[in-house]
Simulated scan of single mutants.
Amino acid sequence: MTTKQYSAYIRKSTEEQSDEHQRADLRDWFKNNGIDISEVEFYAEQASGASEERDEFTSLIENVEDGNVKNIVIWEVSRIARKGFLAQRFFDACEDAGVTIHVTNGSVRRIEPDGTGRLVADIIASVAAEERRNLIRRTKSGQKRAREAGKWVGNPPTGFTVTDGYLQPNLNPDYDNGETGYFDVTEALDSVESGQSYNEAADQTPNITRQTLSKIDKDENRRAWYIDGTAEDERVQDALEQASP
């Protein structure tokens, strides 16, 4: 690989997020510094900042370690990682290879190979990691409170919907929107019990796959939701009582 004077790393956490604000800041930075953007190697991806399994991030570090990068431009330090050891791995690789990190947004704007700016960058990375830990704690606490209140957390099971946080059987499914009705699943399981294959039963049931039907049928507790109208989970049992004749 030809050595690039400038490389840029862009990361967004989810598919729904946009990275255009990062790209715009980077374009402005390159323009203001008289750098032709066509000469810049971009590494962009959608991934969690806590994940080690980031192809572009890994590729960038490998190119740094191979001496193929001279300068890296990022939008802010948190784009690199939201786990301390990942940020340190990146900073150490750049320091060892003599790479300067430029930051377009944040308290530190340059992290030099001689360590200038590294202390502040380390603090920012630590704060980002702590923010992530706090978010996880708040999320888990909120989920626990929701479960204790009888509310459903996460996607509803096949044949159910969630209204105002509470699970209920889907008795009026919107097939055009990809929904499956509660009694659709019941009928599909009855068909399997009568000798139909999972493929045949799934083909006759709106918006359900063979794999999903098979998984429900082979899970004794979950199968009982649809066949017997009973569940060990109180939230599901409360919902099933709405479907009882």
Rank of each mutant, 00 (worst) to 15 (best):
W225K: 08
T116L: 00
Y198H: 10
L189N: 12
Q22Y: 03
Q242V: 06
D238H: 10
N199G: 14
L135V: 14
N207Y: 00
T2V: 13
R138N: 11
V73Q: 05
R11T: 13
G150S: 13
S214N: 10
A224L: 12
G67T: 13
L26C: 05
N105L: 01
Y226K: 08
R23K: 07
S107T: 02
K83L: 02
I10S: 02
D28C: 03
I80G: 00
N33F: 05
I136M: 04
P156W: 03
K151W: 07
N207Q: 00
A202S: 13
V153N: 04
T212V: 08
P156I: 04
F160V: 09
S141W: 12
V103N: 00
E187C: 09
E241Y: 11
F183N: 11
Y198M: 08
C94Y: 08
Y226P: 14
D217C: 03
G115D: 03
K70C: 09
V73W: 03
E232H: 09
L240K: 09
K151Y: 07
K215D: 10
G181T: 02
L167K: 12
K4L: 15
G84V: 00
T212Q: 11
G195V: 06
E53A: 04
E112S: 03
E234I: 14
N33V: 10
T163L: 12
G117H: 01
R222I: 12
D217H: 10
A93P: 13
D174I: 00
A146T: 07
W29E: 10
I61R: 11
I10M: 04
D164F: 08
R138K: 10
T100P: 05
R147T: 15
N172F: 00
P169N: 06
A44L: 05
D55V: 07
L213E: 13
K151H: 10
D66M: 13
G115P: 06
V108D: 01
D176V: 05
L135I: 15
A44T: 15
G84E: 07
G229P: 08
K218R: 12
Y226C: 07
T3A: 15
T3P: 14
V99C: 11
E148G: 07
N63Q: 15
D233L: 05
S107K: 00
V99F: 10
G142S: 11
R23S: 02
E15W: 03
P206Q: 02
P113E: 04
S214M: 07
I35W: 06
E232K: 13
T14L: 15
T209W: 00
W152K: 12
I37Y: 06
M1F: 10
D25Q: 08
E95A: 12
P156K: 07
I74C: 01
I216S: 05
E53H: 08
R210G: 02
G98K: 09
A87V: 08
I208H: 02
D176A: 12
Q143R: 11
N105F: 00
R210M: 05
L167M: 11
I37V: 03
R132M: 01
A128V: 01
K31N: 06
E95Y: 03
T116V: 03
I80M: 00
A97D: 14
D66P: 13
R132H: 04
E200Q: 15
E15Y: 04
T230M: 08
T58L: 06
E220A: 09
I72D: 11
D184Y: 02
K83C: 00
D28I: 02
E112V: 01
Q211M: 03
P169V: 04
D19E: 10
